[in-house]
Amino acid sequence: MSFIELVGLHKSYGRHTVLQGIDLQVQRHQVVTLIGASGSGKSTLLRCLNALEPIDAGEIRLDGDVVSGPGVDVNRLRRRVGMVFQSFNLFPHMTVLDNIALGPIRLLGAEPRTARDRARSLLERVNLAHRADYYPDQLSGGQQQRVAIVRTLAMDPDAVLLDEITSALDPELVAEVLNIVRELAADGMTMMLATHEMHFAREVSDLVVFLEQGQLLEQGPPEQVFGDPVEPRTREFLRQIVEAGRL
């Protein structure tokens, strides 16, 4: 059984169709990367998975259980499937430590001391223990994004969704964030990510999915999708990426 399964997923905003009948299976410990032009539906797909956007048709299943539609426990879903955004979304009035500990305390019922100890341990993992008592505006963009990733990990999710997490960063800060994702992949975390970092997608992915105008046009291992794509539109997209020096 697939850990995450999308069956006939449709999503529209008014007359604008964003996702058109997406079928996708994600196995435990797999890294699945969504690629495609801006506006192809990558971010919307991730937001639907985290119930930030309601779907119009189809089903989302987690471990065989339907987690889309009326009556779904959204909070339980988000505890199991965490999400990291491109805009960090840290609380500016709270320290780094409190940003990370808040979720486990409020949503998981963790003891404050236990939650903060866990937060410090995770900060050490990403080399930010010395910034525990700083506020977000005292950190670089790369540091803020690492804190955002740690905040998600503090909830002990079964899977993590990463939505263009380096797009708001200066180029020199991208590597420090991607290194954390590499470590998570090596540890076996189930992940789905949308990214324009094609070198990284080729390196870290088990499965690459190419979206075009809301349709899943092609999927396969990175060596096949990047090295010998089947669909003409995939080939054209990657040709443009190569010409732009991004692959």
Rank of each mutant, 00 (worst) to 15 (best):
F3H: 11
F3Y: 14
F3Q: 12
I4W: 01
I4T: 05
E5S: 14
E5R: 14
V7R: 15
G8S: 11
G8F: 04
G8E: 11
H10I: 08
S12Y: 01
Y13V: 07
Y13A: 08
H16C: 03
V18F: 12
L19S: 15
L19M: 15
G21V: 06
I22G: 04
L24S: 11
Q25N: 07
H29V: 01
Q30M: 04
V31T: 14
G36C: 13
G36N: 12
G36S: 12
A37D: 12
S38P: 14
S40M: 08
S40I: 04
G41I: 08
K42Q: 10
S43P: 10
T44F: 06
L45D: 06
R47I: 07
C48T: 14
L49I: 07
L49S: 03
A51L: 14
L52E: 13
P54I: 02
P54L: 02
D56K: 04
D56A: 10
G58I: 12
D65I: 04
V67A: 03
V67I: 13
P70R: 11
V72H: 12
D73W: 09
D73S: 11
R76N: 06
L77G: 10
R78G: 11
R79F: 05
R79T: 08
R79D: 09
V81K: 00
G82M: 04
M83K: 00
M83E: 03
V84H: 07
F85L: 02
N89K: 12
D98V: 06
N99A: 07
A101C: 00
G103Q: 13
P104M: 11
I105F: 02
L108I: 05
A110D: 14
E111I: 01
P112W: 03
R113D: 15
R113I: 14
R113S: 15
R113C: 05
T114F: 03
R116A: 10
R120D: 05
R125W: 15
H130I: 09
A132E: 14
D133I: 06
Y135I: 08
P136L: 10
D137W: 11
D137S: 13
D137C: 09
L139C: 08
L139K: 04
G141L: 11
R146D: 10
R146S: 09
R146V: 11
V147P: 03
V150Q: 08
R151W: 04
T152W: 04
D156I: 04
D156G: 02
L161G: 03
L161K: 05
L162W: 10
L162S: 09
D163T: 06
D163I: 09
I165A: 06
T166Y: 03
T166S: 07
D170S: 10
D170F: 09
L178E: 00
N179G: 13
V181P: 00
R182V: 06
R182W: 02
R182T: 09
E183H: 05
A185G: 05
M192A: 07
L193C: 11
H196P: 07
M198K: 06
H199V: 13
A201W: 01
E203H: 09
D206Y: 01
L207C: 13
F210A: 03
L211F: 08
G214C: 09
Q215V: 12
L217V: 15
G220S: 11
P222T: 12
E223R: 10
Q224E: 14
Q224A: 15
V225H: 02
G227C: 08
G227M: 07
V230N: 10
V230E: 12
E231Q: 15
P232N: 00
R233L: 02
E236S: 13
F237Q: 03
Q240R: 14
E243F: 00
L247T: 01
L247S: 04
